Amino acid sequence: MRSLRRRAALAALLAAACLPAAAQPQPGAEAQPEGVPFQLEELPIPVAPVLPPADPNADALAISKEVFGPRLRVDAAFGAFQRGFFLTALKLARPRAEAGDAAAQTLVAEIYAKGLGVPENLPLASGWYARASENGDVLATFELALMYQEGRGVPRNRARAAELFALAAARGSVPAKYNLGLLHIEGTYAAPDLGRAAALIGEAAEAGMAEAQYDYGTMLIEGAGVAPNPREGAAQIGRAAEQGLTAAQVDYATLLYLGKGVPRDLGEAVRWYARAAEAGDPVAQNRYAKLLAAGEGVAPDLEAAAMWRALARRQGLTDPVLDQLLAAIPAATLARAEERARFWPTPPPGGTAAPPR
């Protein structure tokens, strides 16, 4: 799985969101990983479960027909790849790739880039991605852009990455549009243009990309590159939260708590903070602990609050306001809470389960 990192300029833009200062991570807090997984579904084939191969020498075409049905036109190399027969897929795709088949070139590149059945070979993968990109394959263009951006298999060259993101975006790649939008916000390797950035990220959001929904929602709330629209901004962030993007869940919970762009709903705010806390986000753990300690939107539970505080502290986030709320907690209760945090998410032997969501 591959992640796309936010640019520093976007992080600064998002920092202006309406989050209570007391709950901000202190220096040393672990950053919440964010990104978009590589989508195997972008390959030009039907999607089938990837199962462990029972016989590496089995005929790939026969296997593919068994999965997809006899009436479906099946590509043997891609069918083998989907089934986990990577060496067979490479053997079938390589002659087509050498003959200039862009899709086969991308498949060969994927196998070498991820070390599927062969040793990982990023320089070789980048070469195949480059050939496929020259032949018009949008996935290859995007993957090659990432390699230049990260310096994987090729010398790091963000200017070249920007060119490739622009090319892939023009060819219709949703993640390329998102990345190009980030570059326009940063304004170093693409012209500084918040309007263009909002348009590109908005297109990616409309296509259902969670990271784009989250960022576009923030831009709508802040009026960055687009007319302010708090209601639609909150809706976009909510869509990203529903897709499981933890950072969006935290911000959506805050919008619900404040009633910004959505009707104020403490119960829903608690639910979203709890969901993000359970996913390991320290900011959510801290805020959920404060709500539990204060009994705001949820029944008060000092032991659970102290447990979540301990988990947030483990990641470097401290909060004097929360400490004050828990100042009078009995020593025995505090000891149980910290024991639960030690074993989280599994309850300690003979202990109690984690607090309900």
Rank of each mutant, 00 (worst) to 15 (best):
R6V: 11
L10H: 13
L10C: 11
L13E: 12
A23K: 02
P27F: 14
P27C: 09
G28N: 05
A29W: 02
Q32D: 02
P33S: 08
G35I: 00
Q39I: 00
E41G: 09
P49K: 10
P52K: 12
P53N: 13
P53K: 13
D55W: 03
P56L: 12
S64Q: 09
K65R: 15
R71D: 15
R71H: 14
L72C: 15
R73C: 09
V74H: 10
R83N: 09
L87T: 07
L87N: 10
T88L: 04
A89R: 02
L90W: 01
K91S: 03
A93S: 04
P95R: 03
P95Y: 03
A99F: 00
G117F: 07
S126V: 04
S126Q: 12
G127V: 06
A130S: 13
N135D: 06
N135F: 08
G136E: 04
D137M: 09
V138T: 05
A140L: 06
T141V: 06
A145P: 00
Q149W: 06
E150V: 00
V154Y: 02
P155M: 04
R160A: 09
R160N: 03
A168K: 00
A169F: 01
A170P: 00
R171Q: 04
S173N: 12
S173H: 07
V174A: 01
Y178V: 00
H184S: 06
G187A: 12
P192K: 14
A197Y: 01
I201V: 15
E203H: 06
A204G: 08
G208N: 05
A210D: 09
A212S: 12
Y214S: 09
I221A: 03
V226N: 04
A227K: 04
Q236Y: 10
G238F: 01
A241R: 07
E242G: 04
Q243W: 00
A247T: 13
D251N: 14
L255C: 01
L256P: 02
Y257P: 00
P263K: 14
E268C: 03
V270S: 05
V270M: 07
Y273W: 15
A276T: 04
A277H: 06
A279Y: 06
P282L: 13
A289K: 02
L292V: 12
R309E: 08
R313I: 13
R314V: 02
G316P: 03
L322T: 08
L322P: 01
D323M: 07
Q324D: 11
A327F: 09
A331P: 10
T333S: 14
E338K: 07
E339F: 08
F343K: 10
W344C: 13
T346A: 15
T346S: 14
P348A: 09
P348N: 14
P349S: 07
T352N: 11
A354Q: 07
